[in-house]
Amino acid sequence: MNFRKILALITIILLGIFILQAFLIIPEKGEIALNNFGKADIENRTAQLYIDKSVNSTNEQVIYKESKDKESGSANIVTSIVANYRALDTLGEVTVLFLAATGLSAILYNKKHAKSNFILKEDSFILKNGIKILFPLLILAGSYIIIYGHLSPGGSFQGGAVIATAFLLKLLSSKEYELDENILKIIEVTAGVSFVSIGLYGLYAEGSFLTNFLETGTIANLFSGGIVPIIYITIGLKVAVELTNIINDLMKA
């Protein structure tokens, strides 16, 4: 432990003290400060509007399988936020993901077709056969998570990650296994284009980008939430393909 490290340690401890000190400040009336843990001001928080699923009109109670035609019909409130209220944000995020994947491909382009050290010398029997059973299950589970994203915990990102995991396992298990990049491309492009075209249709039909132009249906039905599940499916596909691509690139590098 040399001097450098001690200095860094001291500085960081000081920084930590200062950060933690911020949580101890008791706000005066009208002042904005950090909450005490679990002491959120429920009445005044923005999230309440999202929970009520009515940002613009008066608050009504939302009841399971009964309330109809809410602003956002998804039972999972987080999904409402991600795919409806903040859908544009999500579009940007997907773009970041896309750019990262593209950048990675660009960086690792030269070595794309060379043999990789990461892949096992010999295929492991257990892995190989385990994957055979696990792979469709993982795909199924991922698809479920994506499709039921607006009703239950989970969503497109999680589901996409699960699907990508399935492909990761597949890649790990076998030397011969090669992903068909054309199919990946097609899926990715289709997903991205549909996301944007849904948004554009909203612009055309309702006058604003990514508007929920479909009927939102009854809360907690499968077919509910208007465009939310559709967008979620496109995002899910895109994330799955993107992550698979990243994994593929890194494995081949």
Binding site: L7, T11, I12, L14, L15, F18, Q21, A22
Partner: peptide, 18 residues
């Protein structure tokens, strides 16, 4: 990076940011 952290700590010490 260390200087940035140090700077923030010094600012905090001087009472300019907290």
């Amino acid at each position: 990076a260390f200087y940035m952290v140090l700077f923030i700590v010094i600012l905090a010490f001087a009472g300019w940011i907290i």
